[in-house]
């Protein structure tokens, strides 16, 4: 009888720390961590809490973990991940948290509280983001060989697009439609500027502005995934990147065609 109770306790405890490990893994994936890092962190955390064997499988949209231990036999939890972004500050802190868990092995409740604190970290204030949306396209327009006038126009377009993006995010518009509208408006802006003699080259402005949304990092990462053996993740990312960049280019060309 007594043995049975302690077995149940152990099971509860294991399911607690497994849940915590999955929460951390989920947050890492959403913050833009690589799949191998997520799998590695979950494995280490579960081992630190006493699991004998941990099997993790993760792709960008799902995590499956099974842990084994003599006190609770086996436990499995899965998680569907939706949404992704790039938040390196959060990833950094999550990484520190999982290091901390592995070295100190705190109570899961305490670690969960710490995780909650991390989840509430903010990105840069909106004003700064507007500033970034002006500076980055301008810099890349110059980088790709545009003139200073092109850069100024790209900066203004970037700010306008930030307003659009804010609206699209607010109403949770589908990612592809959002990318299309983004590039359509960007294209109109570039054509308008060139037609009215405000700028010299539509291409340079377009490429500068497009850097804000083009999934170049996703493309590079997907190939990195292929080579390191995460073929599933690589395929998913690759397809997504290809479709997104097609949509974006289509938006710019559509602007050109409609204007004519």
């Amino acid at each position: 009888m007594h043995e049975n109770a302690s077995r149940l306790d152990a099971r509860d405890y294991a399911s607690d720390y497994l849940y915590l490990a999955l929460n951390i893994g989920e947050q890492m994936l959403i913050s833009g961590a690589e799949v191998w890092r997520v799998e590695d962190s979950i494995r280490r955390i579960c081992r630190a809490y006493g699991a004998v064997r941990v099997d993790v499988f993760s792709i960008t949209s799902s995590i499956v973990v099974t842990i084994y231990g003599p006190e609770f036999s086996s436990l499995t939890q899965t998680r569907r991940i939706s949404g992704s972004g790039t938040d390196m500050h959060r990833l950094d802190r999550l990484n520190q948290l999982s290091r901390d868990i592995c070295s100190r092995v705190p109570d899961p409740v305490e670690a969960a509280r710490e995780l909650e604190k991390i989840q509430t970290t903010k990105s840069y204030p909106l004003i700064v983001q507007f500033f970034i949306y002006a500076i980055s396209p301008a810099a890349f327009t110059v980088f790709f060989g545009g003139t200073w006038r092109d850069a100024a126009v790209a900066g203004v377009i970037g700010m306008i697009l930030k307003v659009l993006e804010q609206l699209l995010n607010r109403y949770e518009v589908n990612a592809f439609l959002s990318a299309f509208l983004f590039s359509l408006l960007g294209g109109f802006g570039a054509i308008f500027a060139v037609k009215h003699g405000l700028a010299d080259s539509m291409d340079k402005i377009s490429i500068g502005v497009i850097m804000l949304r083009i999934p170049g990092i996703a493309l590079t990462n997907s190939i990195r995934d292929f080579f390191s053996g995460d073929t599933m993740t690589g395929l998913l990312r690759f397809l997504e990147a290809a479709l997104l960049s097609m949509t974006i280019a289509f938006g710019f060309v559509a602007a050109d065609v409609i204007w004519r």
């Binding site: 950094d92 490429i207 170049g216 960049s245 097609m246 280019a249």
Partner: peptide, 28 residues
């Protein structure tokens, strides 16, 4: 810190965004 932070940001100027755009432009 995780190395991703530095890799992603340092790779930004290399990212073939421009030629990706040109490619898709040709397709459309």
């Amino acid at each position: 810190a995780p190395d991703t932070i530095y890799i992603i940001c340092s790779a930004i100027p290399l990212i073939p965004g421009g030629s990706l755009y040109n490619t898709m432009h040709c397709a459309v």
